[in-house]
Amino acid sequence: MERFMIIGERIHCISPVIRKAFAERDAAPILQRAKEQIDAGAAYLDLNIGPAERDGEEVMMWAVQLLQNEFNNIPLCLDTANKKAIEAGIKVYNRDRGKPIINSADAGPRIDMLDLAAANDAMVIALCAKEGIPRDTEERLTYCTEMLERGMALGIDPNDILFDPLFLVVKGMQEKAPEVMETIRLISEMGLKTNAGLSNVSNGAPKHVRPIIDSVFAAMAIQCGLTAAIVNPCDQRLMETIKTCDMIKGNILYADSYLEL
């Protein structure tokens, strides 16, 4: 089995520091967050430039080259609703260490992100949602199947689609958590890959509790088959949990210092 894929979430324009850095093309704060995440064990970095309707193409190209030049072509997840920006990013993207991931398509208005992935030989995160929050497991699977069929018709390798069952906040939608687990299990049983936007689950919970909810949620989801997650790799408890899951599942070989790698 392959190792669990950790996608670092910290280059996100919701952070004022990063938003400002994008606007001013200030490399330092972006490189710093990238380095922290890579050192902590991120395999991919999410690059969220926001809706970026005005200068998305330039920002994406600038950031892709900045990160890949500095960090030995670290693979990236291009995260924006602006399709032209994604295309521009892919044009300058180096694939030596992995295909770009488009973040994200859904079964509704953003289904054409699948077309974009197919046209550019990219991987894509596919949210199992159409309008609002899916009612139940069955509805999630319906969307999964719709996107899978469309992707395959377009010639995408099913392994290049990371299905995201839509992780929801526990505080307020507690009853959805078992549904998410069940969805991962069912999608995994089809031999498909899954991704989690993990930090959503602990939103609103006290700060000291969040890493616990995130880690346990991750461990349970990994046992259901989860193969990737967008997370904060600087969360030590979470990273230790994921590495230990990898070790227990046999994805990495045990050594006394396995947590230090």
Binding site: L253, Y254, A255, D256, S257, E260, L261
Partner: peptide
């Protein structure tokens, strides 16, 4: 011992 082989490499590396 495969686990020890790995561990010793890690220790040398560290």
């Amino acid at each position: 011992d495969i686990n020890l082989a790995k561990q010793l490499n890690i220790l040398l590396n560290q």
